[in-house]
Amino acid sequence: MTDIIDGDAVAADIRADLQDSIDALADEGVRPGLATVLMSDDPASETYVSMKQRDCEEVGIEGIHVELDPDAPADELFDTVEDLNDDPEVHGILVQMPLVEQVDTRRVLRSVDPEKDVDGFHPENVGRLVAGNPRFKPCTPHGIQKLLESAGVETEGAEAVVVGRSMIVGKPMANLLIQKGPLGNATTTVCHSRTEDLAAHTREADIVIAAAGAPEFIDGSMLKEGATVIDVGVNRVDADTDKGYELVGDVDFESAEGVAGAITPVPGGVGPMTRAMLLYNTVKAAGEQEGIAVDLP
């Protein structure tokens, strides 16, 4: 039997556990504040931001949303980020990606105050992660660690394969897995679009983390019996449904189920954890900026 790792349930537990920290901050007159900035007319981005703001409201975090005209000059975005950097009631800043063509994404990542960079993408925070002293762990990789922990998966000494090398998931995930300490100490291989014979790597893995953004390209024949499979992909494919499409992961769930020892579904696996860890980082940022010790789950 393959265990289904329920990301919705684990994320709900984390949000509930964060409540004690949020209450402790409230006792000191502090309400964590998360600012989201949207400069895009991409419907998916609009949905993501709306969900993040709703999450904030549910747990008692102050959500501040700034929406900019996608046709506005880039300086309007940078001025907005600077204002949020200077606002003491804003503890975390998230600039929703992808950005419009006229904006330099790397410059945006550098412009966010590293102490408010709750995505963990500022070069300073990336460096701290690699050095083994993270200020903020990027939300999706951190959420995956929490899923592995909830499923009782032992990473120490395990063979792990990360498929994908993005700065959002693949690279930080590999760095977390090789770190000394809990949920680390794995022997980690990073595969990508130029990897020859991907299956030769995934079949040897105790843990497979699929984050390449290609629908159902990993199937059961590419997995080791009993492996733990974390599917990060969210891909829209045509389907005979009311919406005309369905969401699938990077893993062919049907063929992987029964081979894997444990697997995350899509949706309901990694996605809820990414949002939960954004709340986690915002609460952590508020505590550190206000000089208030908080116990985090």
Rank of each mutant, 00 (worst) to 15 (best):
A72F: 15
A74I: 08
A74Y: 07
A74V: 01
D75G: 00
D75H: 14
D75M: 13
D75P: 00
V81R: 11
V81N: 12
V81Q: 13
E82C: 02
E82T: 09
N85K: 07
D87R: 15
P88Q: 15
H91W: 02
G92R: 11
L94W: 13
V95H: 14
Q96Y: 15
M97A: 14
P98W: 14
P98D: 12
L99Y: 14
L99K: 04
L99N: 12
Q102Y: 01
Q102I: 13
D104R: 09
R107W: 05
R107N: 07
R110T: 08
S111K: 15
V112R: 13
V112A: 12
D113E: 05
D113Q: 06
E115Y: 03
E115M: 00
D117Q: 07
D117W: 01
V118N: 08
D119Y: 06
E124Y: 03
N125V: 02
V126M: 06
A131D: 15
A131L: 04
A131Q: 01
A131R: 08
G132I: 11
G132Q: 09
N133H: 08
P134D: 05
R135K: 04
P138E: 10
P138D: 05
C139M: 06
T140P: 04
T140Q: 09
H142G: 13
L147K: 11
L147T: 10
L148Q: 06
L148W: 03
E149P: 04
A151T: 14
A151G: 07
G152T: 10
V153P: 15
E154S: 09
E154F: 00
G157F: 10
G157D: 10
G157I: 08
A160F: 01
V161L: 03
V161R: 06
V163M: 00
G164H: 05
S166C: 10
M167Q: 08
I168R: 06
V169D: 12
K171H: 12
K171D: 11
P172C: 14
P172G: 15
M173F: 11
M173E: 11
A174L: 01
N175T: 15
N175G: 10
N175S: 12
N175Y: 04
L176M: 05
L176V: 02
I178N: 02
K180A: 05
G181A: 01
G181S: 06
L183M: 05
L183I: 00
G184N: 02
G184F: 00
N185V: 03
N185R: 04
V190H: 02
H192W: 00
H192I: 06
S193I: 06
S193C: 06
R194S: 08
T195E: 02
E196A: 13
D197V: 11
D197T: 08
A199N: 14
A200H: 09
A200D: 15
H201G: 05
H201R: 10
H201N: 08
R203P: 13
